[in-house]
């Protein structure tokens, strides 16, 4: 009799810890993402990843508005440059930070659906990296950075079991999201450079407004994901 009571208590404790983990999974992962971004060397590839999604968003916006991508460049310090011709300058400028936020949400959301979708999305990312290398990467440094990112996704696909692939992709999505939340703040350096300044020149709306807009969009996206994650756990 005491044995069965112990077992019952043990299973109850396990169940409650499972519920806690599921309930607060999003916030635990977000916390993990914040910690990873503080680590000196580990954070570097994830900064490159956010930078890649930022630049590819500029490029895709150019393609969608009738322009073309000439070159994508990534730099080791997390900076990037997308050279385009044609298209809507407003949409292209807006979609740098906006696109990175969308990519972060997309990666997290699709990874949360089920394992098969997480796997399919990882393959799609691999295809996107290969496509970028073939079409838009023109220098060795960018080639190296994109190859590192490609290796990161392939390693996630190959070496993590199906069970952990979802979690790893979710953390990757949150890393991109957190990075894209913090990146617009670098624009507040008083130097009038970057996408905020470009939009300010185009629209006569001050740079700070655009920075606040991106920041709000990022915070709103984080809030929506947390709500969705909480609903799913119930």
């Amino acid at each position: 009799m005491p044995d069965s009571a112990d077992k019952h208590l043990h299973s109850n404790t396990q169940q409650s810890s499972m519920t806690f983990r599921h309930k607060y999974q999003f916030w635990l992962m977000l916390f993990a993402a914040l910690i990873i971004l503080q680590l000196p060397f580990v954070s570097i590839p994830f900064k490159w990843l956010e930078s890649y999604f930022h630049e590819i968003s500029h490029g895709l916006a150019a393609l969608l508005t009738g322009g073309s991508i000439l070159q994508i460049q990534l730099f080791p310090n997390g900076a990037g440059l997308c050279t385009t011709r044609g298209g809507s300058s407003f949409v292209i400028s807006l979609m740098g930070y906006g696109g990175a936020i969308l990519w972060g949400c997309l990666i997290y959301s699709l990874a949360s659906v089920n394992r098969r979708i997480a796997q399919a999305f990882s393959m799609l990312l691999v295809a996107l990296f290969v496509f970028s290398i073939l079409l838009w990467v023109r220098d060795l440094l960018t080639l190296f950075i994109v190859l590192v990112l490609l290796a990161l996704v392939i390693a996630q696909l190959k070496y993590s079991s199906q069970k952990y692939l979802q979690n790893l992709l979710q953390i990757t999505g949150l890393l991109v999201l957190v990075n894209s939340l913090m990146s617009p703040l670098y624009l507040l350096d008083g130097q009038s450079r970057g996408d905020g300044a470009a939009l300010a020149n185009l629209t006569y709306i001050p740079e700070i407004v655009w920075v606040v807009l991106w920041l709000s969009a990022g915070l709103f996206a984080t809030y929506r994901l947390s709500k969705k994650s909480f609903t799913r756990s119930r």
Binding site: E55, H58, A62, G67, L70, A79, G80, L81, C82, T83, T84, R85, G87, S89, I92, S93, G96, S192, R193, G194, D195, A197, A198, N201
Partner: peptide, 17 residues
């Protein structure tokens, strides 16, 4: 930014950082 605008005009491309 003014100088960068000039360069963009000369080469006929747009650069987004």
């Amino acid at each position: 930014i003014a100088q960068r605008d000039n360069i963009e005009q000369i080469f006929g491309v747009d650069l987004f950082a």
